[in-house]
């Protein structure tokens, strides 16, 4: 920093910190509670209603054991990882390619296409025609059915266009004058500057893929191809008593199992986010003044 911090500045920091810590606590306490429930034996859970502090010797990892030893889980995890990575990559490629021309203010089709895209955020034909399209394309029981119907999200496209438009126009102009083609400008100049938005939108797409559920129920009937969310939910619904439950089928205490499933599905995202985070701060004041 070039300037020394005054008293007001310091107070400002203190206030910011206090607010952020309070918000974080409001979020972390329920999350911590979920984590604790996932290791609380049922009898303890019922006596206490779940507590924030479970003694280590009372913890049970039965829920995790039951989920992780399921023969279906590793495969389903692989399917989800595949859909998420390949799907997100496709999403990003098509969205970027579409956003770039639309971000140019002198692009003749900009406005009609923009409006046409906006139109799709308001109107849709419903689930049945989409199902027919997917079936007609031969995508039933094909991973394509989990990636193609949501290839471009109108919201993400608009956000990306807005970001491109905010990039300094001079750099692009200079490159164009130097004889670079549109493709070269996008690849060598625009994209390197767009890491924050690629990370953000990539995250949005990835999370949508990771959580996709009913698509998979509808389009995928082959058990080998079911993604994680479907498999986890079928493991969880085993606790529901219906007339065909075997009398001595091992039923886990529902809460423990449910929360263990929540922790297991959320955990991978916990690791992905920090990886993307560094792109959010690239090029900001904070990055440059800190030294």
């Amino acid at each position: 920093m070039t300037r020394s911090m005054g008293f007001g500045e310091k107070m400002f920091d203190v206030v910011v910190w206090i607010i952020l810590i309070l918000v974080t606590l409001a979020v972390i306490i329920p999350l911590w509670y979920l984590l604790m429930v996932s290791v609380t034996p049922f009898d303890l859970w019922t006596r206490t209603g779940g507590t924030l502090f479970v003694a280590p010797w009372q913890m049970t990892f039965e829920g995790y054991r039951q989920l992780l030893t399921s023969p279906r889980l590793p495969r389903a995890f692989g399917v989800s990882v595949f859909i998420t990575t390949v799907g997100t990559l496709l999403n990003l490629i098509v969205t970027t390619l579409m956003a770039y021309p639309l971000s140019k203010s002198n692009f003749p089709l900009r406005k009609p296409i923009l409006l046409a895209v906006l139109f799709t955020t308001l109107f849709s034909g419903g689930m049945v025609p989409t199902y027919l399209v997917v079936r007609q394309l031969g995508l039933l029981n094909n991973y394509g059915s989990l990636m193609l119907p949501g290839l471009v999200s109108a919201f993400n496209l608009l956000v990306m266009i807005a970001f491109f438009r905010n990039l300094p126009a001079e750099i692009e102009e200079a490159a164009t004058i130097d004889g670079a083609s549109d493709w070269q400008v996008l690849w060598h100049i625009v994209l390197p500057l767009s890491k924050p938005i690629l990370a953000t939108i990539g995250l949005f797409y990835a999370v949508a893929h990771w959580n996709s559920f009913f698509d998979a129920v509808l389009y995928i009937s082959n058990a080998e191809m079911q993604p994680l969310q479907v498999v986890l939910r079928s493991i969880l619904s085993a606790g529901n008593v219906n007339e065909y439950v075997d009398p001595d089928a091992a039923l886990m205490p529902q809460e423990t199992l449910r929360m263990a499933a929540v922790v297991l599905t959320t955990l991978p995202l916990l690791f992905v986010y920090p990886l993307l985070q560094k792109h959010f701060t690239a090029g900001t004041l904070l990055g440059s003044v800190k030294e």
């Binding site: 034996p41 049922f42 009898d43 019922t46 008593v241 439950v245 009398p247 001595d248 091992a250 039923l251």
Partner: peptide, 15 residues
């Protein structure tokens, strides 16, 4: 059966 069958009564018995 949701009450007395072993898989369901077990958690009650433990608690």
């Amino acid at each position: 059966c949701a009450g007395f069958c072993s898989g369901n009564y077990d958690p009650f018995a433990n608690a």
